[in-house]
């Protein structure tokens, strides 16, 4: 990834299309949560691709090759662990960080998520004041300096 171009994240609305936004895949079935995280990411200059369930998420990940995947665990038809395993099964996606964002807060839930292939684990409810700082730790070149 060292050969990748540097991306400068700018406030929304400024010089559209001029700069390639960093792409984040959000796999979340709950509409409110999807909107919340989309809003936050968008405000911080990320391009968000949304998937409503696991299979769609796996498909979009392969097509879009996002910089980061935020993965809910409780999903219809295919749970987050299965999705993580499916993503990790694709060699093209192996270096993309997958952050589990879940309301599964019981003992062992974190370990299960990491074992399924997730890179990080964030409990819901998220704290909007610290959320961005936490996910940007997983990016090579986070736009932290330029965030508000």
């Amino acid at each position: 990834m060292g050969g990748r171009k540097r991306i400068h994240l700018l406030p929304a609305g400024l010089r559209k299309g001029e700069i390639m936004k960093a792409k984040v895949l959000l796999i979340e079935d709950n509409e409110q949560n999807r909107y919340l995280m989309n809003f936050l990411l968008d405000k911080h200059g990320y391009a968000v691709v949304e998937a409503f369930d696991g299979p769609q998420g796996v498909k979009l990940a392969a097509e879009e090759l996002p910089r980061l995947i935020l993965l809910d665990i409780q999903l219809p038809t295919m749970d987050g662990y299965a999705v993580a395993r499916a993503l990790r099964a694709n060699p093209a996606l192996e270096n993309i960080p997958i952050i589990a964002v879940t309301s599964y807060a019981m003992a062992g839930d974190r370990e299960k998520a990491l074992a399924a292939g997730c890179t990080g684990y964030i409990e819901k409810p998220i704290n909007p004041a610290t959320f961005m700082a936490r996910i940007e730790r997983y990016l090579d070149n986070p736009p932290t300096e330029s965030s508000p």
């Binding site: 949560n33 919340l36 936050l40 807060a105 019981m106 409990e123 819901k124 998220i126 909007p128």
Partner: peptide, 26 residues
């Protein structure tokens, strides 16, 4: 307990999350 925890956290996520965003002035 696991279910309750999960089911309560999901709406709380919205409440706390949006409240925080709004208070941040975003």
């Amino acid at each position: 307990l696991a279910t309750m925890s999960h089911e309560l956290r999901t709406p709380l996520n919205s409440i706390i999350g949006f409240t925080g965003i709004i208070l941040m002035g975003l």
